[in-house]
Simulated assay, not measured.
Amino acid sequence: MQAMQINAPLTPSRPDTAVSLSPAALDAACCAALKHEADAWPKPGLVTPVDSGSHRDMNYASFVDSIAAVRGYFAEVAEAGARGATYAELQPIAIAAETRMLAATYGANTHRGAIFNLGLLAAAAAWRQANPAHGRARCGDLVARLWGPAILASRSAAPSSHGQAVWAQFSAGGARAQAAGGFPAVYRVGLPALRALLADGIDEEAALIGTLMALMARLDDTNLLWRGGAAGLADVQSAAHAFERDGGVRHPAWRDRLTHMHSWMVQRHLSPGGSADLVAAVWLVHQLGDA
């Protein structure tokens, strides 16, 4: 099984020194990453404080309520990671967080992907801190090493989902393949894009959106495949590439460009939810000083 395809990977940047955080601080960092992603505007097809994008079952308030509901989960999963928990031991913690999310959002899937992605990265960060000999290892690599085989094996036992259906139809790996592969999209695409924008003096909101567009241009996003098929994915990737070629968020009129893109994506009910989940992961590993 292969990880979600990444086209034309960007050049990786060098890390800061790895940051050590307590479970409570990791929890706060994960929740802050989710809030940063939710607050950013404009994001084509996605929920923002301005509108609900292509989503009819959720809005910005849903995301705020969801973040509040999962607060504490990342500390719990980090504590388990520090103890050397198996993937089977991490799963019930994540399932409990997902149950709280669904109750808070009246059944809307606001953060299922983030519970999975950020939870694993938080667990890996805590494991790294508990094992100083591995202090220079990337959290993504640790996820692959510690839990990768179990993550892939869990696919056959998982309940039916949009991601499962897309895998069967298009052979796109989705979240499980990303995690089992060490989050290549985060480290090879998103993180270098974010750090390059911040280094150029781009403000954090615009840099996060630029990171989103870099991911949208390069990922076989299973949410786009589910909603729009191969043609929908290709159209979004093409538009994201064109946005980058024209200067991206460095262009003075970038917000107008993305507002137009948002309009036609909403008309076609297209949402790059997989890319959005990874934006929060990028922000987290940036804060952790990963390579």
Rank of each mutant, 00 (worst) to 15 (best):
D16N: 12
A193I: 02
T105S: 06
G174A: 12
G190M: 12
R227I: 13
L224E: 10
D141C: 08
R136W: 00
L194T: 04
G174M: 11
Q91W: 15
A168F: 00
R71T: 15
M265D: 12
W147D: 14
T105A: 09
A137P: 04
M213S: 06
V77H: 00
P44V: 03
A78Y: 03
Y60I: 03
A61V: 01
A80P: 03
A240E: 13
A103Y: 05
V166Y: 02
S156M: 12
H55A: 03
A123G: 09
A104P: 09
Q2D: 15
A8E: 15
G210F: 06
A199E: 14
A29Y: 02
A180P: 08
A104C: 02
A114P: 03
G140D: 03
A133M: 05
L90I: 15
A114E: 11
P132I: 00
I93V: 14
W254A: 10
H162N: 10
G210M: 06
A217Y: 11
P12K: 07
P49W: 06
A97L: 14
A280P: 09
A68H: 10
A199G: 06
V285T: 09
R155N: 05
A97W: 10
C31Y: 00
A175R: 07
I115W: 13
A179Y: 02
D235M: 11
A85K: 10
H162V: 04
W226G: 07
M261D: 10
L46K: 07
G45L: 11
L121P: 00
R188L: 13
R268F: 08
V189N: 07
E204P: 01
M1L: 12
E79T: 09
C139D: 07
T211I: 11
D65R: 15
D51Q: 13
H286T: 06
L142A: 11
D51M: 10
A199Y: 08
V70A: 07
A61Q: 02
A239K: 00
C139G: 06
N7E: 15
V249G: 12
A24V: 08
G248Q: 02
A94M: 14
A28Y: 00
A78M: 01
